[in-house]
Simulated scan of single mutants.
Amino acid sequence: MTVTTSRNGAVGTITLDRAPVNAFDEQQAHEFALATAELDADPAVGAIVVRSARKVFCAGADIAMMDSWRELPDRGQRLEKFCLLLQEAFATVAASAKPTIAAIDGAATGGGFELALSCDFRIARTGAKIGLPEVGIGLLPGAGGTQRLTRLVGPATAYRLILGAELVDGATAERLGVVQWAVDDVDSAATALAERLAGLPPAAYAAAKRCIDAAGTGDGYALERSEIGALIHTEETARRLDRFISG
Rank of each mutant, 00 (worst) to 15 (best):
L39S: 14
R210K: 15
F32E: 04
V49L: 02
V93P: 00
F90S: 06
A238G: 14
Q27L: 14
E31T: 06
Q180A: 02
D242W: 12
F32S: 01
G9S: 14
D185Y: 00
T5H: 09
D120C: 14
A44R: 06
A203K: 08
S226M: 10
Q180K: 06
G106V: 01
I63G: 09
I212D: 14
G106K: 02
L34P: 01
G170C: 07
E166N: 07
Q28C: 13
S188C: 03
A194L: 08
V56S: 08
D242M: 10
A29N: 06
M1F: 14
F57V: 03
L132M: 03
D25K: 12
E88I: 15
K209W: 06
E235C: 13
T126V: 15
A29W: 02
A35C: 03
T15V: 13
R122K: 10
L34Y: 08
L79R: 08
A215E: 14
M66Y: 02
L115G: 08
Y159S: 11
L39N: 09
E114N: 08
A107G: 04
E80D: 09
K55I: 00
A94N: 09
L72G: 01
D120V: 13
V183P: 01
E166M: 06
A33G: 05
I104G: 06
R51E: 03
G112R: 04
G106E: 05
A238T: 07
L161S: 09
A208M: 07
L79F: 06
P155H: 12
R196H: 02
A214K: 13
G60C: 07
D120R: 04
R18Q: 12
V93N: 05
Q147I: 09
T146L: 14
F244R: 13
G60K: 03
Q77M: 09
R239V: 15
R54A: 13
V186L: 03
F121L: 07
P43M: 00
G111S: 04
R160P: 08
M65S: 15
R54L: 14
F32W: 04
E227A: 10
M65D: 05
P20Q: 12
G199I: 06
C211H: 12
G170V: 06
G218S: 11
T13M: 09
L34G: 04
R151S: 10
L163E: 13
A204K: 10
L231W: 05
F57D: 01
A95K: 02
T5R: 10
G76I: 01
D184A: 04
F244D: 11
S188Y: 00
E80S: 15
A61V: 13
M66C: 12
G46L: 00
G110S: 15
L16D: 05
G111I: 04
V178G: 02
W69D: 05
D219F: 08
P99R: 02
A143F: 02
K129W: 14
T92A: 07
C211F: 14
V49G: 04
R243W: 09
L86I: 00
F90K: 13
I14P: 14
T172E: 08
L167Y: 11
A190T: 01
